[in-house]
Amino acid sequence: MTAHVEQTGPEPVPTAPGTTSAVPGMTPAAPKPVTKRFEFVLGLADDALVAAQRLAEWCTRGPEMEEDIALANIALDQLGAARLLLTYAGELEGAGRDEDALAYRRDDREFRNCLLVELPNGDFAVTMAKLFFLAAYQVPLYTALAGCGDERLAAIGAKARKESAYHLEHASLWVRRLGDGTDESHRRMQAAVDEVWPYLHELLTPDPAAPVDPATLRADFDSVVSRVLSEATLTVPETSWTPAGGRNGLHTEHLSYLLAELQVLHRAHPGASW
C-alpha cells in the first residue's frame, strides 16, 4: 500500500471555516465537514465492525460446534449493523466515502470504536465477558436510537435491538453458567470480568450533544449487569483505572493488527467485490 487515504495525527489541525482541504490520492478532493453526528454514528459503526471481526476469529475454533455457529451468527448481526451505520456515516460526511471506503481504507487513528471491542478474545470467558458487556450496552442504546429524532438511526436501532436482545440472552447464559459452575470456570469468569471491567467506563461517557447521550443508558446497563453478575456469583471488581480514547482515535496496539487482517484483501485489490 503506497498511499493512505488520510493521515490523522494525534492533534488534528482544525480547518478554518470556508476553506477546503484537498486530500491527495484516492479520495476526490472535497470539503469534509466532520460533524458531531458523523463522529457519533462512526463510533457505533466501528463498535459493531470491530466486534464482528473479533467474534469471527472464533470460526472453527469454538469450544463446541453449536457455540462456533452462535458466535459466527452474532458476528454476522454485528456486521449487518456496521454496514448500515457505515453507509449512513458516509452520507453524513458527504465526502463520497461508502461503507467499503470507511471499513477498508481508514487507519487505526481514524477508527472511533470503544477499546472494549478491540481487546483480544482471550479465553472463552473473556470473549463472553466482552460480548455480555457490549450487548448490555447495545440493547438500551439501540432501543433509545429507535425513539430518537434521526429517522435513519431510528430505523437501524429498531432493527438491531431485536438482534442484540438475543446476543445479551446468549452471553448472559454463559456468564451465569461459567460463573456459577465449577471452581475453575468460576475463577476464569471472574478473571475475565476483572480484566474487562475498566473498559466499560468509556462506553457510558456522557455526550449530551449526541442523538442518544450514552450517560442516559447507565440505569439499564447497571441493572442488567448487576443482576447477571449476582446470579453468576461474580463480584464487581474495585478499580479506579478507566482507560479510554477510542472515540478520539487513540487505541490499544491490538487494533492495528486486527485492521491489518480485516483490510488486507481490499488494500491489495482496491474495489474488489464478489
Binding site: 453449536e66 457455540e67 455457529i69 451468527n73 452474532i74 438482534e163
Partner: peptide
C-alpha cells in the same frame, strides 16, 4: 433447545 443460533441467523436448533 440445543443452541440459540442454528444454521442461519433466523433459526435456533
Amino acid at each position: 433447545q440445543i443452541s440459540r443460533f442454528g444454521s442461519t441467523a433466523c433459526k435456533a436448533l
